[in-house]
Every structure is written in C-alpha cells, then in structure tokens.
Nucleic acid binder design. Structure first.
Lengths: 242, 242
DNA sequence: CGATTTTTTGACAGTATTCAACGGGGGTGG
DNA sequence: CCACCCCCGTTGAATACTGTCAAAAAATCG
C-alpha cells in the first residue's frame, strides 16, 4: 500500500496514535498522476474530492473575468491541494501541476468519517486550515503593501522555508520550477518586471541562479527585503491535547 | 443568557439539532465590549481565545516591518474574528474595532470539547474556514490583478453582499464605517487614491454617498468593474450529512 | 466652539506596465 | 542527427497608473 505523507506531516504537529495514523492512511483512496502544465481540476469542475500532494508541485489559480490570472498558492509535497473547494459543488480554483506530480485523492465523505471517529485530527485539520489562512494573509500583505522587489523575494523566501520545514536540504539551492510568468501571476506583477527584479536580487548578492535552481546566498537579507516572517516555525498545537 | 448569533449563522448551513444549538450557545463564555478604534487584541499578544462578533464591525490587520499596514479582512456581525490565531501562542494579527462593537469570547479548550462531542459541527467549522480561505484568495486576486478602481468597487461589493447574506436591507444603502485610509490599507492603495476612485464610482453612477453610508445604484455594473463573484451565495454543505 | 481627524484637490514623481524585439534551449519531426 | 519552432528569458524605450507631497475644506469629537 502506498503510504500517505499526510500522516508524516500531521505527525509533526501531534504525536499520533496508531489508530489515527491508520485512519489517515485509509483516507486516500487512489492516486492520480499529472504531468507538468496539466490541469488536475479546472475551476467550476465538480469538486467531490480533495488532494494530498505526494510528489512534485502544484499550484491553484483563478481566472478573472477580464482574463487575468492570479496564482493563489503553491502546493508542495505532503500539503493539501484543492481542500478549499470543500464548501462548494464546483471548484473555486484551478489546480495545475507545476512539475510532474502525483496526488492522493480523498473523498469528502471520507472526511466526515475522520471527523466523527478522530475528533482530535479534525481539530488539527481545522487548526492547520487556519494556519493556511494566515499564510494567504501574509501573501495578501506582500502583494498589497510591498514593492515588486520585495514580493519576488517573499515568494522565494516562503518556498525555501516551507521546503526546509519538510526536511529538504535547502543549502544546496532550491528548485524553482515556475516560469517568470507564473511568478508574476503569483506576485501580481508582469513577467517582464519579475525578470528585472530577479536579476536585481542576483546583482545584490542575495540569490544566484543556475538552470531552474535558486541558491540563497544571504537568507537574512532576503527575508529582510521580503518583509518575511517565518510563521510556520512557531506553530503551536499543544493545546489540542494529548 | 445572551444568545449567540453563531448558532443562527451555522443554522443557515445546517439544520441544527437542539443539542448542537445548546453546545454553540455554551461556547461563548463571556462578552467583551470595544469602542471604535480600540484594539481588541494586538499582534503578538497571547491568543488563548477567539471571538464571535455580536454587534458592530471589527477588522484584522497586520503591520509590516517597514511600517505599512495591511487590513486582511473585515468581520461583520455573527462572523468569527481572531480564529486565525488558533495555531499560535501569539496572535498573528491585530484586531481592531471598526465601530463600537461587542464580541463573544471562546476559549480554545471549549473548541476541543465541541469537536469531540459534535463532530458534525467541527466539520462545518472546518468547511467554513475553507470558505474564508477562498474569500481571502478572492481579495488576493483583486489586489494582485485588478486596477485601483476595481479594488475599491470590490470592497464595497463584497461588504454589501455579505451584509445582504445576513438579511440586512441593503437596498436602502449600507454603512461603510471605514476611513479612506482604512479602505486603502485593505485594498493596497493610498488614502488619496481611494478618494479619487470613490468619486469616480460616484461620477459613473454606480454608487452614491451620504454621510458614512453608501447606496449601490447599479449593482451589476459595480460587480462587473469589480470582477466580483458572489461565492457565498452558492455554498453547499449538504454533504456534511443529516 | 476649538481642535483634530478625515476628505478633497492639484501638481509632480516614481514604479510598474506595455510594446517590441532578440537570443537561447529544448523538444519534435523529418 | 539536424533543422525548425515554440516557449521562455532578457533588454530597451515609451507610457500609464498610482504614490507622494502639500494644502485647504469639511466633518467629527470633546
């Protein structure tokens, strides 16, 4: 049986008992594989299920009536994707594979059982959903109130720290499998301007780039210009109980 | 006993049984009253509790290291406020009273009991938290990808429709107890430019203003220029079960 | 009624967008 | 295996939108 990394991730926040771990493993009923650029689920498509990223990156985006696109968040391995669609029949966002990727599929009905049988996990999921809201709010503040330079720095910083949280070796550089157009759609900039800001960060010695990977040369200064706060480092779930 | 409007709000999504309604009423242990401009809870203050707005409006904001402020969301009556702080010891955002207001106070521990005893309510809360994430994502798209004009229109449109969802008579105009500086902090604009955009909307005949109230003259056109989608009108919670 | 905050207006500056063009790299098909 | 093509990254110049600064009018508060 393919084991879910969901249990691993939740286990970071709570010491899971066996029954809980098994329940989490049973949650994902199947796997779906998508290749770079492919749409896993389009806006307005039926949303009967949500996903857990197993390999690769995805992102969710929405298309505005005027044709503009906003990338809302990037989903790294072991994170949820498409869980925001729970409250609707039809998906509010489009899910796209940023790299070749594989996801576990969770039916909404399975969640109902999980909440009933493992209330503590339900509360943990609720708490983590709130943490995701905070992450989105941080992005809103970045896009709404900081310069183009800072926004690009923030995106890099955010991804780097989230990768580090999963135990990835970020010192040897991180992958950044997004086109500059995608980075622009995520930060509210044009691709052209993203390009200029990136090379400015390079010139200033904060990062360097080599074919699709980014090396962080001066994390403190990068985080400083990004106005970035590492919120996920301080998450506290102790009140959820033993 | 002061009855909570939380039950009323959740009752819109789910037919609650008596036990559930009582549990919700028991959730709020006390009331706190704040007056316009007052800080209910500052960023980094201990976050042992969350709030339900009973009367008035609040908003949550965050201060960036460079001194800029971003208003993240406006909290109308019967909505949660400060629930995003659940995952941390210290509040990620500042909660400010936009008008004189009163909130019910919920201790985190009480939530634990609620999830354990009423898993269906837990799942509903989880689902609604996801809906809030979507609302925040819509704001991100607005700020990231639309013009100043559209952002201001979007803010008005959003508030109007949320008020209508609570049964308020919006045809006679809605209150907008935010200064133009606050509107700017919410939309990622300067107060000066908010002013220009507001009077442009007035000139174009979409809205009119009379001492602190806004009349929507042409909702369709306002929503159109705002790129606004009324997501909350289509929320589906039927899958949560009977 | 005086003081303070908020709204309004104008002129100017600056940041980011738009438009256009070129180069490089990778994949595809011949 | 190579040519071609398309996408992506890069660069420059001109434009447009929004921000900044300053000051006055209006509204609110005590």
């Amino acid at each position: 049986m393919v084991q879910s990394c969901l249990g691993d991730r939740l286990g970071r926040y709570l010491r899971l008992v066996d029954a809980e771990r098994h329940a989490l493993e049973a949650l994902e009923e199947s796997e779906r594989v998508v290749s770079r650029g492919q749409v896993l689920r389009a806006e307005q498509a039926p949303a009967r299920e949500l996903f857990v990223v197993r390999r690769g990156w995805l992102y969710s985006s929405m298309l505005l009536p005027d044709g503009n696109r906003q990338i809302l968040s990037v989903h790294l391995p072991c994170e949820f994707a498409g869980d925001t669609g729970m409250a609707w029949h039809n998906a509010p966002f489009t899910l796209v594979a940023a790299t070749d990727a594989a996801v576990g599929v969770i039916d909404k009905a399975a969640l109902r059982r999980l909440f009933a049988e493992h209330p503590r996990l339900g509360l943990l999921l609720y708490t983590l959903a709130q943490a995701e809201r905070v992450a989105l709010a941080d992005r809103l503040a970045s896009v709404g109130r900081t310069s183009a330079r800072a926004r690009v720095a923030a995106l890099i910083c955010d991804i780097m720290r989230r990768l580090r949280a999963t135990g990835e070796a970020v010192e040897s550089g991180i992958p950044l499998p997004l086109t500059q157009e995608e980075i622009g759609d995520a930060t509210g900039l044009t691709a052209v301007h993203v390009n200029r800001m990136m090379r400015q960060l390079v010139e200033d010695g904060m990062i360097s780039r080599t074919n699709g990977r980014v090396h962080i040369l001066d994390e403190a200064r990068l985080a400083g210009t990004a106005n970035h706060i590492d919120r996920f480092a301080t998450i506290d779930t102790s009140w959820l109980g033993a």
